[in-house]
Computed example of a mutant assay.
Amino acid sequence: MDVKKLVIAIVVIFVLFFVISQPRASADFVLNILHLLESAANSVVLFLRSLFT
């Protein structure tokens, strides 16, 4: 078995275990990542608006 496929399988199994065993914590983790991405996108937009105004 390829090492890359093995690592991907282990990560998928870990994520599934975490989602099944702690769904509330998993949802909070995903929401935190989405808020971080939203904040980063807003910062980029603000930067670009500052350049062109």
Rank of each mutant, 00 (worst) to 15 (best):
V44P: 00
F29M: 05
I8K: 02
S21P: 01
R24N: 10
F14R: 09
H35Y: 10
R24K: 13
Q22W: 08
D28E: 09
D28M: 11
V12I: 03
A9E: 14
F52T: 03
I8S: 11
F14P: 00
V19L: 04
S21V: 07
V11S: 02
L48Y: 10
K4D: 08
A9W: 09
S43N: 10
A41R: 15
S39F: 07
M1T: 09
A41P: 00
N42V: 07
L16H: 01
R49S: 10
I13R: 11
I8Y: 07
E38H: 14
S43C: 11
I10N: 14
F18D: 04
M1W: 02
S21D: 06
N42D: 14
H35R: 15
F17L: 13
A25V: 04
M1K: 08
I33L: 10
L48W: 12
V44M: 06
F47K: 03
A27I: 06
E38P: 03
F47H: 02
I33F: 01
I10P: 00
T53V: 08
V44I: 04
A27P: 01
V44L: 06
E38L: 10
L36A: 09
V19S: 04
A25D: 05
L48I: 08
V7K: 08
F52C: 06
L51W: 04
A9G: 06
V12A: 03
V12F: 01
N32R: 15
I13S: 14
V7W: 04
F14Y: 12
L37D: 02
L36T: 03
N42T: 15
L37Q: 07
V3E: 10
I8C: 09
L48E: 04
T53R: 05
I10T: 10
M1L: 01
K5S: 15
S43E: 10
L36Q: 06
V12G: 01
L16Q: 02
K5D: 09
A40D: 10
S21W: 15
I20Q: 13
R49E: 12
F17W: 02
I20R: 12
V19D: 03
L46N: 12
P23Y: 07
K4L: 09
L46S: 14
R49F: 06
N32D: 15
H35F: 10
F52M: 02
L51S: 01
F18K: 06
V19P: 00
V15A: 04
F52Y: 02
L6D: 13
I10D: 06
